[in-house]
C-alpha cells in the first residue's frame, strides 16, 4: 500500500505572536516550531495503517524552508519511510489553493492508495488543503475523521458532526482523509527511531518544479482584533459573588436555559 501524509510546521501555540512589518503574517523569529497537531494524527494513522497492512510505504511531504526538516525528521522517527521536502522560503505567502496544487502535482503520477492531511493548520486554519487536493486529484475526500479502519480496499471512517453526532462513512479505493483530534494518540518518536530517521531518504524538490497555478486569493492584512471593553469584575464575599454571577448568567446569557 502506498500512503502519503502531508504535514505542516507551525509555531507552538503558546508563543507570543507579533504581526510582521507589512501586516501579512506573524513574525517568525524567536518562535519554537512543532508539527501541526492535526497532522500528528495523520502521521500516526498512516504508520498504523502501514503496520496493519505490512509491505507498505509511507511518504511524508512538507512544504517550507530548511527549518521544516526537523519536523519531517520527527515524522520519519514516528515511522514514515521517506520524506519529500518541497523547498519554499515563502510558504506563508501561498494560498491554500497553491499549496494543494503543489501537493497534487507531486502526487499525480504516484498512485497513492491513501492520503492523510490535518483537518486544518493551527496557524492559518483555512481547512482547505485536504479537500482541494482531493478535488485536484479527482479523489473522494472525507473530512474531520475521528476513527479509521481499512479492510480489503474499503475504508470505514467516523466523522465528527455538530452536537456530538458522528457519521460512519465508507469509501472504496483511494481517497483523501483530513484528520481531527480524537482520531488516535500519536506515539512518541523513540530514541532509537530518532537515530534511525537520520538514515531515511529525504528528497528535496524546489517549489518551482511543482507550482504551476496562480493564486486566486491573497491575504490583505492580518491584525489583532480590537480590544473589547474590559470584562466585568465582581467584588465581595464568595457567597454573594456566587449569587450575583448566577443572576448575570440567567439574565444576560443562555448558558443556564
Amino acid at each position: 500500500m502506498k500512503i502519503l501524509v502531508c504535514i505542516k510546521q507551525v509555531p507552538d501555540m503558546e508563543s507570543k505572536f507579533k504581526i510582521d512589518s507589512d501586516s501579512k503574517w506573524y513574525e517568525t523569529a524567536d518562535l519554537v516550531w512543532r508539527m501541526n497537531e492535526y497532522d500528528e494524527y495523520g502521521v500516526e494513522q498512516a504508520v498504523q495503517l502501514k503496520e496493519q497492512q505490512g509491505d507498505s510505504d509511507v511518504t511524508v511531504l512538507c512544504i517550507g524552508s530548511d527549518r521544516v526538516k526537523e519536523t519531517m525528521k520527527k515524522a520519519l522517527a514516528m515511522g514514515c519511510d521517506r520524506g519529500v521536502h518541497v523547498v519554499d522560503d515563502a510558504i506563508f505567502a501561498k494560498s491554500p489553493q497553491e499549496i494543494a496544487s503543489i501537493i497534487a502535482d507531486f502526487s499525480k503520477d504516484k498512485s497513492f492508495d491513501c492520503i492523510f492531511t490535518g483537518m486544518q493548520s493551527q496557524d492559518r486554519g483555512s481547512g482547505q488543503v485536504g479537500v482541494l487536493l482531493a478535488e485536484m486529484l479527482n479523489l473522494p475526500s472525507v473530512t474531520t475523521i475521528v476513527d479509521f479502519s481499512y479492510d480489503d480496499g474499503i475504508t470505514k471512517v467516523k466523522r465528527e458532526l455538530e452536537g456530538g453526532i458522528k457519521a460512519l462513512v465508507s469509501v472504496k479505493g483511494p481517497a483523501v482523509f483530513t484528520c481531527q483530534l480524537g482520531l488516535n494518540t500519536p506515539r512518541y518518536p523513540t530514541l532509537p527511531n530518532i537515530m534511525k530517521a537520520k538514515k531515511k531518504e529525504l528528497l528535496s524538490v524546489p517549489v518551482a518544479d511543482l507550482l504551476h497555478v496562480e493564486s486566486n486569493q491573497e491575504t490583505a492584512e492580518i491584525f489583532f482584533p480590537e480590544k473589547k471593553s474590559g470584562g466585568l469584575i465582581l467584588e465581595g464575599e464568595p457567597a454573594d459573588l456566587a449569587d450575583e454571577l448566577l443572576k448575570i448568567l440567567k439574565e444576560k446569557t443562555t448558558v443556564l436555559s
Binding site: E70, Y188, T190, I194, A197, K198
Partner: peptide, 10 residues
C-alpha cells in the same frame, strides 16, 4: 543537532 533537538522535544 537535529537529533538532539528531537530528543529534547520528545
Amino acid at each position: 543537532t537535529e537529533e538532539q533537538s528531537l530528543i529534547r522535544n520528545m
